[in-house]
């Protein structure tokens, strides 16, 4: 049997049009959408009018006038007509963007189903425990510091700070420099120290805090981006792992994200299993790729 008439037929644009239409129909059926049956009939029903009026009301804090509502209807009809004509002209077919968006839309629909899932109490606890390092309360502190400016003192900044430390330890006072930020800081999160003083300052303070007798005693000099500092810890709260009850909402959020991603992979694997895929052999791709 000669296949060429079939091939000729397939080359006909009209055939391709019908094939594409059929494909779209099948896709709609699969996704659960509705096929465009009554495509010459545009209904602006009471619900649609309410929608238009509600949109207006939300923006203007008052209902539309009769004239305003009729303008909204005219715009809505125009949009619908152009949309349907575009569909009728197959402007959505053989369009890489449309294909990608449809694929994404199905992906989103799958996500939405997964996103409404609720973990059991045990699931959530197991998840929380295996990701406990995400739910940490950082150390908090109150510190007072004395500042010795590198701009002002140059190479003697360390020695000046060291001498001042000895004076402070001996109960004396020191003549330090004015600083662009506060000299007493109350921080809920010790990481903030990095944003105020620069790299390394937080670690120096947290390490010091771990030593016995570190409260209320001057220590340093601690180098910063601006010079040297003498620091006194007036209060310090250790970092700790939070309990599930404290962070339940966040954990639930994270569980859902991970769950959505996992379900998406599963569903894709299921759908992928329904297809047979042929890819041209990779033996002769030398001209397509970088060595």
């Amino acid at each position: 049997m000669n296949a060429s008439p079939w091939r000729r037929l397939w080359r006909e644009p009209l055939t391709r049009f019908f094939a594409a239409g059929a494909g779209l129909f099948v896709l709609y059926a699969l996704v659960g959408g509705r096929a465009p049956t009554d495509d010459r009939h545009i209904v602006i029903d009471r619900y649609e009018l309410e929608t238009l009026a509600a949109l207006w009301q939300a923006q203007w804090r008052r209902p539309p006038t009769r004239d305003e509502l009729s303008r909204l209807v005219v715009d809505r009809v125009r949009e619908e007509v152009l949309y349907r004509e575009a569909l009728a002209l197959d402007l959505d077919e053989n369009d890489v963007l449309v294909r990608r968006r449809l694929a994404e839309k199905l992906e989103m629909a799958l996500n939405d189903v997964a996103a409404t899932a609720e973990p059991s109490g045990d699931d959530l606890r197991r998840y929380f425990e295996s990701h406990a390092d995400r739910y940490v309360e950082p150390p908090g502190l109150t510190l007072t510091h004395r500042f010795f400016s590198r701009d002002r003192r140059g190479g003697s900044v360390e020695a000046d700070a060291q001498a001042a430390l000895e004076a402070l330890v001996a109960g004396g006072t020191v003549d330090d420099d004015s600083f662009h930020a506060a000299k007493t800081l109350e921080l809920q999160d010790a990481d903030r120290l990095e944003r105020i003083f620069g790299t390394g300052f937080r670690d120096a303070v947290v390490e010091h805090a771990a030593r016995p007798g570190s409260r209320h005693a001057w220590f340093g000099p601690v180098p910063s981006a601006y010079g040297a500092h003498l620091v006194r810890l007036d209060a310090y709260r250790e970092g700790r792992r939070r309990t599930l009850d404290e962070v339940r909402e966040t954990v639930l959020d994270d569980w859902r994200r991970d769950h959505v991603a996992a379900r998406e992979s599963e569903r894709y694997a299921e759908m992928r299993a329904r297809y047979e895929v042929d890819v041209a052999p990779f033996a002769s791709i030398g001209d397509l790729v970088q060595p």
Partner: peptide, 14 residues
């Protein structure tokens, strides 16, 4: 609109 792809639901923006 573009993220949602063709045939968006009427209440997409909201």
């Amino acid at each position: 609109r573009r993220q949602a792809g063709p045939n968006p639901p009427p209440d997409l923006g909201r």
